[in-house]
C-alpha cells in the first residue's frame, strides 16, 4: 500500500458504477468499484464494445443521457462529482485523436484551458504556456498551426493543454493507439512521468498489453459480458468493502 486512506481520498474513487444502454436489459458496466491513488495509473483492458470508453465518458460527464442509463458515485480529491456538469468536474481526458482546436495556434490551444479565474495577467499566462512548451521540448512552437505538427508533437501539446487546465484526475482513452511504435513508447513515458510528478490519479483504457505493462499499476479486465462487484473484489482482492483498497504490487489478471 502506498497511498493509505488519506491518499485514497485525494485519488479517484468509483463506487458501484453501472451503465446500461437504455432499452437493453444487460448492463454494459455492472457495479464497478475501484480506486486510484494520486500518481498511480490503473489500467482497464477489454475488447472493443466492452464499455471502456463509455465508462470514461461517464466519469468525465459526457455520457449521453438519451442513450445510456448510468448510476454510481465518483469521488475526486475527496469530493463527489457525479452530479456536476462536465466543465466543473476538473477531470482531464485524452482521446485517441488529439482534438487540437484547428482554428487556434498551439499557444491559443494551451491558453484555452488555462483558467482565467486563477491567472488573469496576460503575460503571466503566456509565460506559463511557453514554459510548458519548453518543458516538453516544444520551445518556440507558440505560433504554429496545430495541423503542421507531427503526430507525436500533437499528442504532447494535447497533454500539456490538459495539464495546464489543472485537472484533479486524468482519463486516458487509448491515447497511444494511433502513434507508431517508437513514438508510442516515448509519449507513454512522457505521460506517465507527468502523472507521477503531479500526483494525478489516472485511469487508462487500452487494448494493448504493452500499455498496461508500462503503466505498472493494477490492471482490470473488463470482459465482453459484465463486471460484477464480486468479481472486482475478487480481482482487486483486499476485502468485502465495495471500494476495495488497491494493492499496488503490479499487474495481474
Amino acid at each position: 500500500m502506498t497511498g493509505g486512506i488519506s491518499g485514497l481520498c485525494q485519488g479517484l474513487v468509483l463506487e458501484c458504477i453501472s451503465i446500461a444502454v437504455k432499452g437493453e436489459s444487460r448492463d454494459l458496466v455492472g457495479g464497478l468499484s475501484l480506486s486510484v491513488p494520486p500518481g498511480q495509473v490503473l489500467t482497464i483492458m477489454g475488447p472493443s464494445g466492452s464499455g471502456k470508453s463509455t465508462l470514461l465518458s461517464y466519469i468525465a460527464g459526457f455520457l449521453d443521457p438519451r442513450v445510456f442509463a448510468a448510476s454510481g458515485r465518483i469521488m475526486v480529491g475527496g469530493e463527489f462529482i457525479e452530479y456536476l456538469p462536465a466543465e466543473d468536474r476538473h477531470v482531464g481526458i485524452l482521446f485517441q485523436d488529439p482534438v487540437l482546436f484547428p482554428h487556434l495556434t498551439v499557444a491559443g490551444n494551451l491558453l484555452f484551458g488555462l483558467r482565467r479565474g486563477r491567472w488573469r495577467d496576460r503575460r503571466k499566462r503566456q509565460a506559463m504556456v511557453s514554459d510548458a512548451l519548453a518543458s516538453a521540448g516544444l520551445a518556440g512552437f507558440e505560433d504554429r498551426d496545430p495541423s503542421t505538427l507531427s503526430g507525436g508533437q500533437k499528442a504532447r501539446v494535447t497533454l500539456l493543454r490538459t495539464l495546464l487546465s489543472q485537472p484533479r484526475a486524468l482519463l486516458l482513452d487509448e491515447p497511444f493507439g494511433k502513434l507508431d511504435v517508437a513514438l508510442r513508447e516515448e509519449f507513454r513515458s512522457f505521460v506517465f512521468a507527468h502523472v507521477r510528478e503531479r500526483g494525478l490519479p489516472t485511469l487508462l483504457v487500452t487494448h494493448d498489453p504493452a500499455d498496461a505493462e508500462a503503466a505498472a499499476g493494477v490492471v482490470i479486465q473488463l470482459n465482453d459480458v459484465v463486471v460484477r462487484p464480486s468479481r472486482i473484489v475478487e480481482t482487486i482482492g483486499d476485502g468485502a468493502s465495495p471500494v476495495a483498497p488497491l494493492s499496488m504490487s503490479g499487474s495481474r489478471r
Partner: peptide, 23 residues
C-alpha cells in the same frame, strides 16, 4: 469530441460550442 475536449477544459456547453466548434 471537440465539445468534450473544451468542456473537460472547463468551458460551459454553449460557450464550448461558441469557442471551439463555431470558429
Amino acid at each position: 469530441h471537440t465539445l468534450a475536449a473544451a468542456r473537460a477544459l472547463g468551458q460551459r456547453p454553449a460557450t464550448a460550442w461558441l469557442k471551439a466548434v463555431f470558429p
